[in-house]
Design a protein around this nucleic acid. Structure first.
Lengths: 342, 342
DNA sequence: CTGTTAGCGCTTTCAA
DNA sequence: TTGAAAGCGCTAACAG
């Protein structure tokens, strides 16, 4: 069977391919009669437009900015690889990106976002907000000015961003609770390590964990301990003095490696340790059984998906199917850790 | 900055874009001088060819057959979705596929494979061999006749297939061992359920599990029990009478749902149950805590990747980077099960 | 309302 | 060894 193109269906109907193109994309200015004829023929022959040719002819060029933090590097490198991989297929279509990594503070991010919106250089923005809540306003402003903004990894749920792709951190907290209970063989004493700025993400994780604990009658207590990375030694010392009576620790912030170091050198009976994300260092602690499990969220996939959503929206005028694209939570233990590192 | 195309670099050098194209693809018939000039200019301007335009002009059409079983349906549906999704981006490039699902017996598969190779309809074959070993010969024959064959999900390691994408089942068995030990709190008594035909895959899983058990001094015994799906009731009855003394069961074959039913109705103390893959049914057993964990291998990704490898090889003349593309093993428990179903 | 035409970036044939 | 020209399937401007 022959390939079916706009031209081939035009020939069958004694029309010009321009007319066929008009109805195929309902650009208007075609008589109802011909519209009907063309639509029927197209359905009959099962016509599908050729994206390559379409983009080639359109000459549309779109530029989108990706804004996300630099640290932890092992995590964002994976995300960036996912972005770049997905881009491979798309840049021939005239879709281009620029990656910006301002320091991970709210002020710096605000500056960059403002610049991105005002510079006229970009047609869209994909951002991991340092903290969703404070950035709501600026995102809102952008959206009002018809500037499309997408969030990923961290959401800004109260803003009207086009869509979010990333994990559900409440569920992540719950999962952490489940794993800790299972691995400690129904212990009753837990600690959660959070970071200094109690961001939206951190709150979600905590409440997931705590609600799981609450539903689980066997639990005695959950201690919340803060880790401040600008003051690492001191806060580690403080944590150390507070975990003597716990059987399991959930590191909700990005300090799993630091906590592992602490536990490794703490002698005698070690508490069960779980946390988030994978790196070479964490891999080693998994191998040594100092970390029992890490909860991951496929950063590579997340990056690809964020790019795809932006592409679909900006180049294909396709609204995302859902406002929230929640990525799966993956459990990593010694047995499957090697698949998650590098 | 302008877009850099063959034409634009031709203009800069006062050449025709045909000549530029010749050197860019070293088609020969160009003087060393011009070759040098063009190559330098291309590097300087950081030229990248436009795939869309290239495929459009080439008019190359490639057809590949995908051969895999129909059952278990929940699993192969996912794989097929992965294939179809990846195809979305590629069919505009002239890459087409046909999915064939012969009954999962060696004879039927052999027939289909022979037909695929001889029919002249296809330019390549991607197959999940019912059992790698017996299919080696036919794959070998195809490869000898320059007919490219790829394996996925199940390998045919002794054949000279272009590449394999799928899990490492030895590692899967080991992981099963680790999980069982952790979840049973260091039990010493385990059973493994395999299927009637002891395929290559099943052997791998068993030996992974057994070696883990061997290394783990605490284990008393591992019972191997067979499940025959052509004779379900009888073999379930037989299994039932043999698992009274075990604390943990690893279902290595596709009978996790059946085993769950057995355990659910067996009253009193239940053994810990783990197995492979996700379906709606298994999801329910996870929720009820009858299944403690399932080991998955991202069938969607597997399908996409198999397609990509075939595309790269056949359309881009790109040899796969590795002969074996091992997909990660994922651990599914109650807490993250919802991400793995549907 | 419909057709003609040029052109997107590339490949391929033919001619010089 | 090089260039000119046609054409892949589509879009968009212009003409009728």
């Amino acid at each position: 069977m022959m390939k079916v193109t706009a031209k081939s269906i035009a020939k069958e109907l004694n029309l010009s391919h321009a007319t066929v193109d008009r109805v195929l994309h309902n650009r208007g200015g075609v008589s109802p009669k011909t519209i009907k004829k063309v639509m029927e023929k197209a359905k009959e022959l099962n016509y599908t437009p050729n994206k390559s040719a379409s983009f080639l002819a359109k000459k549309k060029q779109v530029n989108v900015a990706f804004v996300f933090p630099k640290y932890p590097e092992y995590f964002w490198r994976e995300i960036e690889m996912g972005i770049k991989k997905a881009l491979d297929d798309l840049q021939d279509y005239g879709f281009h990106i620029e990656v910006l990594k301002p320091p991970h503070t709210i002020e710096k991010q605000l500056e960059v976002v403002q610049e991105v919106i005002q510079s006229e250089k970009f047609d869209g923005l994909v951002i991991c907000p340092t903290d969703g809540i404070p950035l709501t306003n600026i995102i809102e402003t952008g959206i009002k000015e018809e500037f499309p903004i997408f969030t990923f990894n961290n959401d800004s749920p109260t803003s009207k961003r086009i869509s979010y792709v990333g994990a559900n951190y409440y569920d992540a907290g719950r999962l952490a609770g489940e794993l800790l209970v299972k691995f400690t063989n129904n212990s009753k004493k837990f600690a959660v390590i959070t970071d200094e700025q109690d961001t939206f993400q951190m709150k979600q994780k905590r409440s997931g964990f705590e609600e799981y604990a609450l539903e689980n009658k066997s639990i005695d207590f959950v201690k919340i301990l803060k880790y401040d990375n600008r003051n690492a030694e001191e806060s580690l010392a403080n944590i150390k003095s507070n975990i003597n009576d716990v059987d399991g620790i959930y590191v909700a912030c990005g300090a799993l490696a630091e906590m592992s170091g602490l536990i490794e050198n703490s002698g005698d009976t070690r508490p069960i340790l779980i946390g988030h994300d994978m790196s070479k260092t964490i891999y080693q602690y998994l191998e040594k059984d100092i970390v029992s499990a890490a909860i991951c969220q496929d950063p590579f996939y997340q990056g690809s998906m964020a790019l795809r959503l932006a592409f679909d929206y900006l180049m294909l005028d396709k609204e995302p199917e859902r406002k929230e694209h929640i990525v799966k939570l993956e459990i990593v233990t010694t047995g499957n850790a090697k698949y998650y590192v590098q």
